[in-house]
Design a protein around this nucleic acid. Structure first.
Length: 423
DNA sequence: TCTGGGGTCCTAGGACCC
DNA sequence: TCTGGGGTCCTAGGACCC
């Protein structure tokens, strides 16, 4: 792979919100995280108001009110569906595509006669067919393609497509020198701080650093980054999504909880979601971890943050069995008298269901229960998530998160289809 | 009042084995 | 006086990503 493109949607969640509500286009808009807590996406107009990524919304309510900012809860059903549409447009045009995140894909352009023309065509297709505008970076390695994409979005001169490979060396050097080291993929705030002590402050400094020294001081991951910045492709394109090594389901509560009952209902709910994912990838879990914690941002609360591991007697994907294990773990963790804020479960030590031999003595999931799980998954796929669920999930709804301003699920829910005209 | 969720990979250190 | 060395496996924690 010596020519790779990164296609990345601009303001993806914010754009999704405007596609079926065109009256919102051109207005400042922010999308909130789960539980309506933080700002996780902003339209260009909201960015122009100085509203930062990741800020808690309550600190920005006044600014939003003063400037008529539209506030939306996140609608992952809608974003997931728009993401699938983007991916299918890319796959129509390119044989080798890696879906890297909900709004980004790597595309192999090796052997394409005119990669820039190809990228421009892709960009037009996405705009026409999905109404999403993208930036595209093209380079010799994934890390450089990410860097190019960053430039394509940030600097208007590129008109959305930045091909690093076509530039004279002096221009590339100047571009790398113009960007701080933390704009490089894989360099976060912590690493940037440490690198600065070694006088590595720009992307160029990192590219020109001694890779052996980087390996000794920072590890093998950053060494690969350095080599990638030098145009050596070290990170392969992953066309098929790998099976998950762990499956996590957690949520903060809509309100502070002190009782065990609603937390038990939450855990049963999280196990159900995780077990569904587990069965979807054809795996069994051997360990269930349960997590329970207080709100770290409330200094008046007694800090609490604990995890417990419940090993299973045999690998399983049975919601009821996993749930029983998780609830036992929760009961062991729970202490009366504390304010709780979030709980979750994690399934680990996953093995492919096909590889587990049924043991004569240690029983596995019984065939009848496997059939029941298959039926449950089928019903929930056809009639909506949660149609068939454990009674334990219903016992106490006080844990449920806040979703005050979610837009309709325009593309995946019959009752919420957009109305084009009416009498 | 109010601060997300779901992943990956690497490393260090301890237990254990021969 | 003096107490090995190399390997594996597991876990916890840290850093990163979107």
């Amino acid at each position: 792979m010596s020519c790779v493109a990164l296609v990345d949607a601009n303001n993806f969640y914010a754009t999704c919100e405007t596609i079926f509500a065109p009256a919102l286009a051109g207005r400042p808009l922010v999308v909130l995280s789960n539980n309506d807590g933080c700002i996780v996406a902003r339209s260009a107009e909201a960015k122009a108001l100085g509203i930062p990524m990741g800020a808690p919304i309550h600190e920005w309510r006044t600014v939003c009110a003063d400037h008529g900012v539209v506030i939306r809860s996140s609608n992952y059903t809608l974003y997931g569906d728009m993401s699938a549409r983007m991916l299918s447009v890319l796959q129509d045009a390119c044989p080798r595509v890696e879906s890297y995140s909900i709004d980004e894909s790597f595309v192999d352009l090796d052997g394409v006669a005119d990669p820039v023309a190809h990228a421009r065509q892709l960009r037009d297709d996405l705009r026409r067919r999905v109404k999403i505008s993208c930036g595209i970076g093209i380079a010799r390695s994934k890390t450089l393609a990410k860097f190019a994409n960053h430039l394509a979005k940030k600097q208007a001169v590129w008109d959305g497509v930045c091909p690093l490979g076509n530039l004279p060396e002096s221009r590339l050097t100047a571009l790398l020198a113009s960007q701080p080291v933390n704009t490089v993929w894989g360099v976060g705030a912590r690493l940037a701080e440490r690198l600065a002590q070694d006088r590595i402050r720009t992307a160029l400094d990192l590219r020109d650093a001694d890779s052996l020294r980087i390996r000794r001081r920072y590890g093998i991951v950053l060494e690969k980054t350095v080599r990638e910045l030098n145009g050596e492709s070290c990170l392969a394109l992953h066309e098929v999504e790998a099976e998950r090594q762990m499956i996590l389901a957690s949520r903060s509560f809509g309100t502070v909880l002190r009782d065990l009952a609603p937390i038990r209902a939450a855990i049963a709910h999280h196990v159900s979601r995780a077990a569904e994912k587990l069965r979807a990838q054809g795996s069994l879990a051997q360990h269930v971890h349960v997590m329970l914690r207080s709100n770290p941002f409330r200094p008046q609360d007694i800090p609490f943050r604990r995890t417990t591991l419940v090993p299973l007697a045999f690998p399983s994907a049975d919601t009821m069995l996993l749930s029983r294990a998780a609830l036992a773990g929760l009961d062991a963790l729970f202490q009366p008298g504390l304010n709780y804020h979030k709980c979750g479960i994690m399934l680990t030590a996953l093995v492919p269901a096909s590889r587990v031999q049924p043991d004569l003595f240690a029983a596995g999931d019984s065939p009848r229960r496997q059939q029941l799980m298959q039926l449950m998954d089928r019903v929930n796929r056809q009639h909506g998530r949660g149609t068939l669920h454990l009674a334990a999930c219903d016992l106490d709804p006080r844990w449920e998160m806040r979703v005050r301003q979610r837009s309709p699920r325009y593309t995946t829910c019959w009752d919420e289809l957009p109305v084009a005209w009416c009498d």
